[in-house]
Design a protein around this nucleic acid. Structure first.
Length: 299
DNA sequence: AGATGTCAAGCGGAT
DNA sequence: ATCCGCTTGACATCT
């Protein structure tokens, strides 16, 4: 029996893996084993297979947003990667993209802390761009018109203006990356307000992260920062990240589930607007199901 | 068999 | 000056 579908006003998602299914899109290999093509191929096939299982499961639960793991094709941007991954897996990726679309599921990516195109170190910038191009190519292959690559601002190195300049210069000619890119505030370096100039120059939107905002509000209230971020999406459907602070954890550590008061506050400022909410919680899909129950949309 | 420690990568901050 | 955390699976090495 099909779950009731969330109204278009609110779509929820979770990152990378489904614990209920014991499925993950982050199967990988050790770097030294990249040359062993068979292991690498097995990891990719496992990721694609698990992605398909997750997509079907999500659709049944009324979950319409999913972050694909950065390791979908492990080491794809690494110099030792042995193949043309598009040639080898492109058709299958296209098929899964069509499936996601037919199920109404939006896909996103979120490269990690090593991807820092505004680094002061040229080799770091180069590596970062290669990883971002790979990620954008994946989304192009998936064919998701609403696909997003969410990236943090990276290091500040004691000079925000210069860091900002490097970030913009590194990215401003990366047409395909910019098609999908969005910048997210983090808890240490870049508040929503800090990101705005880069977002304007690059013509990319800003992802508001509730928990990060708590630790680095940058002079804006929650409502103000959220509103500022939402405006950057123009006609496109905005995306927001939500997490709760782990009790007793270091600032920014994710709690297993979303705390109800955090959800209520976000819900109040979002009201009925058409926004996608990525729930970053240790319990992954179970945290999403709990919110759907709060919303009266599940069981 | 099971348990443990390390792994491509960069930063800021704590110590 | 050095270490830790981010996230978490793979796998080499140990008991």
């Amino acid at each position: 029996m099909a779950a009731r579908t969330a109204p278009e006003g609110l779509r929820l998602g979770y990152p990378c893996q489904n614990r209920t299914l014991r499925a993950t899109t982050n199967h990988t290999v050790r770097e030294r084993n990249v040359v062993l093509g068979e292991r690498l191929d097995q990891a990719v096939r496992a990721n694609l297979r698990d992605l398909e299982r997750i997509l079907w499961w999500n659709a049944r639960q009324g979950i319409r947003l999913f972050r694909v793991g950065q390791h979908l094709i492990p080491f794809a941007s690494h110099p030792r990667f042995p193949w043309d991954w598009e040639e080898r897996y492109g058709a299958e990726i296209q098929r899964l993209g069509a499936l996601a679309r037919s199920l109404g599921i939006r896909l996103s990516f979120h490269p990690g802390q090593y991807v820092n195109p505004g680094s002061s170190e040229p080799s770091v910038r180069d590596r970062s761009l290669r990883e971002l191009r790979y990620t954008a190519r994946l989304l192009a292959r998936f064919g998701d018109p609403e696909g997003v690559v969410v990236l943090h601002g990276g290091g500040v190195y004691g000079d925000r203006q210069r860091a900002l300049g490097r970030l913009c210069r590194a990215l401003q000619k990366e047409e395909e990356v910019l098609r999908f890119l969005a910048l997210e505030n983090d808890e240490r370096c870049w508040s929503v307000a800090d990101l705005m100039p880069a977002a304007r120059v690059l013509g990319v939107p800003v992802v508001f992260d509730l928990l990060h905002h708590r630790w680095r509000p940058g002079g804006l209230s929650e409502g103000e920062a959220l509103a500022a971020a939402l405006e950057t999406w123009g006609g496109r459907r905005p995306k927001v990240h939500v997490a709760s602070q782990a009790r007793g954890g270091r600032p920014g550590a994710h709690a297993p589930y979303l705390h109800r008061e955090d959800w209520r506050r976000l819900r109040a400022v979002l009201r009925g607007s058409g926004v996608d909410v990525m729930v970053e919680a240790k319990a992954k899909e179970r945290a999403v199901l709990r919110i759907l129950r709060w919303e009266g949309l599940q069981r």
